[in-house]
Design a protein around this nucleic acid. Structure first.
Length: 611
RNA sequence: GGUCCGCUAGCUCAGCUGGAUAGAGCAACUGCCUUCUAAGCAGUAGGUCUUAGGUUCGAAUCCUAAGCGGAUCACCA
């Protein structure tokens, strides 16, 4: 249902779609030549492979039953028809069952001129739908690490991509600020810190909390060893370690609103938030709404009641409440403990309702690692069974782990790549690299610093976003992230190159802003290839939105930058004598720069004017 | 063991709603800075698309099975 509405709104804006014109032409060709009605969605065009002449290729094999003749005949007849009746088709050639269509020069110029004149290129019109993207969702007992970077960059980018697709987007952060893990940091702080503060230690607040989380684990392990030496089994020792009991006691006190504990909790969380804010700022991500689990952890119990009434849930003898998802191919799953307390999914059910009550969202995206696939599978099935209006719009954007060559990252054991460290390292590398290339002449120190920041973070974000989110990825800290090839800086460089051209064009007084496609006789191959790609931009935005996949855009932007660099090496601009062609090439450059800038902004990556 | 995910060049990845001779980047090698930024461009070399069956005019892509790797299957979050 939603898809249809979406199309209806979207159609008028597609400025001119030659692809659709050709497809309609093919439909007519089948009616006229073979006396057969095909629906439009049965017909599809593919880009022609580089080694053949043409732009679009129509594969006729599937239609031989209709045409009742050889592939060559079928293709030739359709080709003739299109050449006669479709304005954009200048010529065609047939290779076996492949009909390659050559577009005429004017259609290239028309496409270009229309995109060029569109101030909203890259922004699809509002579709009237609201979506929430929940991402980041940190624990407040330790600093952010590499895995969080992937999460944050993904979440931010998907939110921006959905905006470009016409959604009204709310970015949400669900902060896990309570629970036993927080108490662990707090216990260790009480024991070992001697009142240390971020100010006194010079540590960022989140790193300070993380330090005590690690200390807790060290002490815990030590106590387990001691208990085992006294004859306890490992299992017993893990349960009986005094420091763990202390943390559990602290959690009970916290839940009972013990003044001293709550005040320590507030103090430490405050430090952590200051630290997170700094990290988020550097990452360039933000949120419209923050939920705290300390406020939401009791939610969901009324939903359990509702579910029991609706017989979606059932009660076992000990009073615990379950949902039976075996008909859906899952298991029975606990939704409320026998003692009436919540589990993870209880509170997630409550939060789902809360989000809907707050924002009346049509869709809700959860950016959470794939180790929680099962949890979200269960959660969504429950909400759908309960008949929630937003049920069909729930989506788990499940991404793979970022692995290190040494294995899985564990905060407790300190085997993590810290987010702040990594960002700093990337910026330092960018600085060293830029200086080595001698590219900072004429930069003030402030401008240089800004550039390093743009390049370092651009490299990092692109590195994490260019890979399909659902795939796990390997990060080797020894091999530094590249600045050449399929990288953020490569695309940023292409933009800076064009910016330089535009500065020069302005200096020379070239009028390219009003270019309308007139006065050009011939469109070169590297120009039409570029126009072809530019014409694809909105299609890629749509696809990236439908698939929740920034990697589609990343790949596209790399292709676009590469195509531009080919054009740049191929054809002169300011040495071109014909002023119309000169203006055309500057305009083409300007549109490419605009597209790169817009596309990169959807990845959360800034783009420099000079580098 | 059940369920889910992945496996494409030495490495990192595209391609997966079936279409032509499977593409990029890195690393290696060869050219190109007295024309607009060489973080670039052009080229060489590198592949039994994990394996075995199947579906069909056609399979990296769809189906089945196996292998390898990972995740998950808590009255943890």
């Amino acid at each position: 249902m939603r898809t249809f509405a979406f199309f209806a709104v979207k159609k008028p804006v597609i400025i001119m779609n030659i692809q659709e014109n050709i497809i309609q032409g093919i439909q007519l060709a089948f009616q006229n030549i073979f006396n057969h009605d095909l629906s439009l969605d049965q017909i599809s065009l593919a880009p022609t492979r580089k080694e053949f002449e043409g732009t679009y290729t129509f594969v006729v094999f599937p239609f031989l039953k209709v045409s009742r003749t050889t592939p060559e005949n079928t293709a030739n007849q359709i080709g003739e028809y299109l050449k006669e009746n479709v304005a954009e088709v200048a010529d065609f050639n047939v290779v076996k069952g492949f009909l390659n269509l050559v577009l005429n020069e004017n259609s290239w110029l028309d496409i270009f001129a229309k995109i060029y004149a569109n101030p909203n290129f890259g922004q699809l019109p509002a579709n009237g739908q609201k979506v929430m993207v929940e991402y980041s969702s940190p624990n407040t007992n330790k600093p952010l690490h590499l895995g969080h970077l992937r999460n944050n960059f993904l979440g931010y980018s998907v939110a921006e991509i959905l905006k470009a697709n016409g959604y009204e987007v709310t970015k949400a952060n669900l902060v896990n600020d309570r629970g036993i893990h927080i108490c662990k940091s707090m216990v260790a702080y009480q024991r070992f810190a001697n009142g240390e503060t971020p100010e006194s230690s010079g540590l960022k607040g989140d790193h300070l909390a993380g330090k005590y989380y690690v200390l807790f684990d060290q002490e815990y392990k030590k106590q387990i060893k001691e208990l085992m030496a006294e004859g306890q089994t490992e299992e017993e020792a893990k349960k009986n370690a005094p420091i763990l009991l202390e943390a559990q006691e602290m959690l009970r006190k916290w839940e009972a609103n013990d003044e001293a504990i709550v005040s320590l909790w507030k103090q430490m969380n405050g430090w952590v938030y200051e630290g997170f804010d700094a990290s988020y700022k550097r990452m360039g991500v933000d949120f419209d709404k923050t939920y705290y689990e300390s406020n939401t952890y009791l939610l969901g119990k009324d939903i359990v009641e509702e579910g029991l009434k609706k017989e979606v849930f059932f009660k076992k003898d000990n009073g615990s409440v379950w949902v039976d998802l075996t008909p859906e191919g899952l298991d029975e799953k606990l939704v409320l403990r026998g003692d009436g307390t919540s589990v993870y999914i209880t509170q997630d059910m409550g939060t789902a309702d809360l989000k809907y009550d707050d924002f009346k969202i049509d869709k809700s995206v959860y950016v959470v690692g794939n180790e929680q696939d099962y949890h979200f599978d269960v959660l969504f099935k429950i909400m759908q069974k309960l008949g929630r209006p937003y049920g069909p719009g729930l989506y788990h954007l499940s991404y793979g782990m970022v692995d290190l060559p040494t294995g899985k990252m564990k905060s407790r054991e300190g085997t993590v790549v810290d987010a702040d460290d990594l960002m700093q390292e990337m910026v330092d590398t960018a600085a060293a690299h830029t200086k080595e290339l001698g590219k900072i002449e004429g930069f003030t120190p402030e401008q240089a610093t800004e550039l390093y920041e743009i390049l370092g973070l651009g490299a990092l974000k692109y590195f994490l976003l260019k890979v399909d989110p659902k795939k796990r990825m390997l990060f080797n800290p020894q091999e530094s992230i590249e600045f050449q090839g399929n990288t953020g800086p490569f695309i940023q460089y292409s933009h800076a190159r064009i910016a330089s051209i535009l500065r020069k064009a302005d200096q020379l007084g070239v009028d390219y802003t009003n270019f309308d496609g007139k006065g050009i006789e011939k469109v070169e191959e590297s120009e039409s290839s570029l126009i072809f790609l530019l014409n694809d931009f909105e299609k890629k935005i749509k696809q990236a939105g439908d698939d929740y996949s920034p990697s589609i855009l990343a790949q596209y932007l790399f292709d676009l930058a590469k195509e531009y660099n080919r054009f740049y090496a191929d054809l002169p601009i300011f040495n071109e004598n014909d002023p119309a062609i000169l203006a055309f090439r500057v305009a083409l450059s300007a549109l490419t720069a605009k597209t790169i800038k817009k596309g990169m902004s959807l990845l959360g990556i800034a783009v420099p004017e000079r580098m």
